[in-house]
Write a protein that binds this DNA or RNA. Structure first.
Lengths: 200, 200
DNA sequence: TTTTTTGTTGACCGAGCGGTCATAAATCAA
DNA sequence: TTGATTTATGACCGCTCGGTCAACAAAAAA
């Protein structure tokens, strides 16, 4: 076994709880006191484990993005029909933005989109992290869309880049609307319309 | 003339400068010191004139929204063709989000969309103000869209509410993308594609 | 048991925050 | 000139913030 006093709490659980706080309140809006409350750790330990607030935030954001990506890959894997796969992924994303298990009355939206507005513009590191993970997600979406095109060439009349751009923009818009209490069913209906327009 | 010491600066100019700060940095990100610097007023005067920080922010936000609305009405008035009118309004909105005359290297996005993410979720008053102004804007857009439908019934295959929802979501998404340095020409291209999809 | 290593704790720090207020300054009315 | 009225100023206040650190606790190694 390793030398020294053992950890009281698994750092992964700490990160998960910290992520929930950042997701709900944003970077600036979350104080270290909030995170202490949510994690049960004292600030000294948090700083020793994660460095500073920004590093903790970026670790939490990466956890969020990676967790989401894994879920998406699983969804894609469980669908044979690529159209069904992409729809399932996007509707799952909406569900993700809707849930708020911190007990707040407000919906949380997508943590990535939230960060895009309130953190990324003021920090290049966060900006880069988001861009990198976004490219990864677009990459896997492109694969699925190309499957659709291969199976049914006349279904999609527009280039893949246009389709992904329009989907991305719509998802970001919906995340914001949901954060401002758009009815989740309404959000799903809007997404459905957008996908119909695109032929998906 | 009125009794008492005259104002050093027109409150309207103060509000304009304060708005620029809030637009660029958001509500939480703007300190009263920032606003003092931008307006040339000392905090005592600001508090006497506007009450508190939130009231100042709401006044600035309302100024932004009303200014934008007036510009939109003018654009609509100068176009006979309703399709051209609605396109002009939306492309003008993109231009509006792109300009950054504070000298920052970052684009500002739309102040309303920014507020939707970083202020509205935590304050009912701001939320209400944004909702009210949004309804006003949707109202005037509905009028134009109904003109399109009246002139050419088979151009728009979907209900007005669906069209406005899809446009709104796309504009919000584009505002975020532009805030994260999407090329303005790219943003225009995406908007053009979205409008083509809708038959506008 | 003693030493070494690692994790935990909470008091403490300087800085910046939003907001207040007594005082000074600038105008008009008398 | 004097007093009333309004605006401008900046020192000041209490609070919260992110971050530090020396003392303490718990385990393995000696």
């Amino acid at each position: 076994m390793t030398v020294g006093r053992p950890r009281k709490i698994d750092p992964d659980i700490i990160l998960e709880n910290a992520m929930q706080v950042f997701w709900e309140k944003g970077y600036e809006g979350s104080s270290m006191a909030d995170i202490m409350r949510a994690t049960g750790m004292h600030k000294g330990s948090l700083y020793q484990t994660f460095g500073d607030k920004k590093s903790l935030f970026m670790a939490a954001l990466e956890r969020y993005l990676d967790g989401m990506f894994v879920e998406q890959q699983q969804i894609i894997k469980t669908h044979d029909d690529p159209t069904a796969a992409i729809r399932a992924v996007l509707f799952h994303l909406l569900e993700y933005a809707h849930i708020n298990d911190q007990g707040g009355q407000q919906q949380r939206g997508c943590m990535a989109v939230n960060s895009l507005v309130d953190s990324a513009p003021y920090d290049d590191d966060i900006c880069q992290l988001l861009e990198q993970k976004k490219q990864r997600m677009i990459g896997s979406m492109v694969q699925v869309i190309e499957q659709i095109q291969a199976a049914n060439p006349q279904q999609l009349t527009r280039p893949v880049e246009v389709v992904t751009a329009l989907i991305g923009v719509a998802m970001e818009g919906l995340s914001i609307e949901m954060k401002n209490n758009m009815d989740p069913d309404m959000a799903k209906a809007v997404l459905d319309q957008q996908l119909q327009l695109l032929g998906i």
